[in-house]
Amino acid sequence: MKAGPVDASSPLLDVRDLTIAFGDTVRVRDLSFSVREAETVAIVGESGSGKSLTGLALMRLLPRSARIAGGAMAFMGRDLAVIDEPELRRLRGREIAMIFQEPMTSLNPVLTIGAQIAEVVTLHEGLSRSAARRRAIELLDRVRVPDPARRVDDYPHRLSGGMRQRVMIAMAVACGPRLLIADEPTTALDVTIQAQVLDLLDGLRRDLSMGLILVTHDLGVVGQWADRVVVMYAGTKVEEAPPGPVFADPRHPYTAGLLAASPRVGGGRSYRSGPLPEIPGNIASAVDEAGCSFAPRCPHAIASCRLARPPLVRVGEDRVAACPVVNVAEPAP
């Protein structure tokens, strides 16, 4: 399931120094990462750390009050940050697709699921009504919705959350996109259904060899499904590495805290740190800290942490982290 040896060709998506702001308030700062073909990159972080904003920025679907304040998002020879509206519409749904956290509200309640799936193939592939309908049934079958020929005429309120998320996935992969952004696709679902949905996504990634950005706040998901993990805290990337090394040896106190808080992967293996202490106020208020945004909660914070934002440094093969305190003892690579 994991991608084989890292291939050297240029990545499918290359995000450089992405900055997203509401007015003067920066919510995502200087974020960089890349996604290769058929690769699954997990973006992990607590709620409010800017994961959804990042995904929405890639689709250029940010809320009206937000703007991309800097950086570039290279995708198939274009910069998603600057392309115009018609070009954007040609990409959306065809080359890049996104599925959202809330399956209960993400489908239009007054249209049948068949109509909603057909809409996207009619738009991008110019299929006729009947051909689009047949395609919708095939897609429902592909995402393992039982009895697709009848379900195709159902309205969303008749479907359970898991079924709706499958419909969302069918819509997203209908035109065989190169990149799929899944924003916490299983957070709203029963635990028993989570693995099925993630398996489905993984299978589709392999079959369509598309890049997959898997946004989650659950580190447990990461180990099983991701090729690489980007850990975000308060709008910045604090660590990036393949999941194995992350679990074995987290190089940022926040990652360690997340691991400790995650029953499935953390448990007793917690690294140098107890569970994250509760701090008053919003995680977002940390964005404007002068120094490390995690310093107020960090068990290892020293005076210098509060003065300047620690830079990301290479801390091993294929991994970076932004904590000089934890990484001070490491031999320089």
Binding site: M59, L61, L88, R89, R90, L91, R92, G93, R94, A97, M98, F100, E102, T105, S106, L107, N108, P109, V110, L111, E119, V120, L123, H124, M168, M171
Partner: peptide
């Protein structure tokens, strides 16, 4: 403001199609 309008835009529909098929209908 509803999520399904965002879904419709994510499909690549034009502002008019989103407005008439998804927003106005509801």
């Amino acid at each position: 403001e509803q999520d399904y309008v965002r879904t419709a835009r994510a499909k690549g529909l034009s502002a008019f199609a989103v407005g008439s098929r998804h927003v106005l209908r509801n």
